[in-house]
């Protein structure tokens, strides 16, 4: 039997990281899943809302106001609020994550579509483009840089928020933060829980930038 209550074993046991790469990988995959679902669903909803906001202008105010108020709710509180209704399920996590993507995505999508110059649209109409074709072939591509800029911000935000779903038993890499706190501030876990999502966010941000460059070769000037 190991000596009970030996003082904290000297030094920080960094080898924990190397010994648990499979767990870390598993958590990373979970992190990516949670982020990915939120982005896909959030983007789909945001596109619908944006198109609505552009066709019916007076909806824009209420949509941004509502998503803006959601933005002021601390995410952990939102997860707690949802938990009694949807349980400690992936649905609870995703509802929260999706809601937080909406403000940025709608705002940027609308701004992007609004930014398409009127004379370009006029010219397309002159060439006999239908409303749908105009949207898909002219407006959307031209708005893409701003829309993707929104996606980048929303993705980075979502990766950060996923860590908080650790409070409702998910968390991806964020679960190591809670674990580390329980284990008397076990530094290697805290570091993995903190640095891991940061790296993930930066990588996804960079990847989306590359996607944007590939999709819109005519636009060298990326919107911040």
């Amino acid at each position: 039997m190991s000596p009970v209550l030996a003082q904290a074993s000297g030094g920080i046991r960094w080898s924990w990281i190397g010994d648990n790469l499979d767990d870390i990988w598993e958590a990373t995959v979970e992190h990516l899943w949670l982020t990915g679902i939120a982005m896909v669903v959030g983007f789909a909803i945001a596109m619908v809302l944006s198109v609505l906001a552009i066709r019916y202008r007076r909806l824009y105010g209420p949509i941004t106001a509502t998503t803006g108020v959601i933005f002021t709710i601390p995410s952990f509180a939102l997860f707690f609020v949802l938990a009694p209704f949807t349980g400690l399920t992936v649905l609870t996590a995703e509802i929260g994550l999706v809601l937080y993507t909406l403000l940025v995505l709608v705002r940027n999508t609308v701004a992007g579509l609004d930014g398409v110059p009127e004379d370009v649209k006029e010219a397309a109409r002159g060439m006999g483009y239908t409303r749908n074709r105009l949207f898909l072939e002219i407006e959307l591509p031209l708005a893409l840089p701003v829309i993707i800029a929104g996606l980048r911000i929303a993705t980075v935000t979502t990766v950060g928020l996923v860590t908080i779903t650790a409070l409702i038993t998910f968390g991806g890499l964020g679960r190591f933060i809670l674990d580390g706190l329980q284990q008397n501030l076990f530094v290697p876990k805290l570091v993995v829980g903190a640095v891991g999502p940061t790296v993930l966010a930066l990588v996804l941000d960079g990847a989306l930038l590359l996607v944007q460059r590939a999709l819109t070769p005519w636009s060298r000037r990326a919107a911040a």
Binding site: I177, L190, A194, A201
Partner: peptide, 22 residues
């Protein structure tokens, strides 16, 4: 700017906790 946005707030809290307490 990029890094500042990418660090999760929960991670900042842990950092704040370690800094303050430890």
């Amino acid at each position: 700017s990029n890094l500042g946005r990418a660090v999760p707030s929960l991670a900042l809290l842990v950092f704040g906790l370690l800094l303050s307490v430890r």
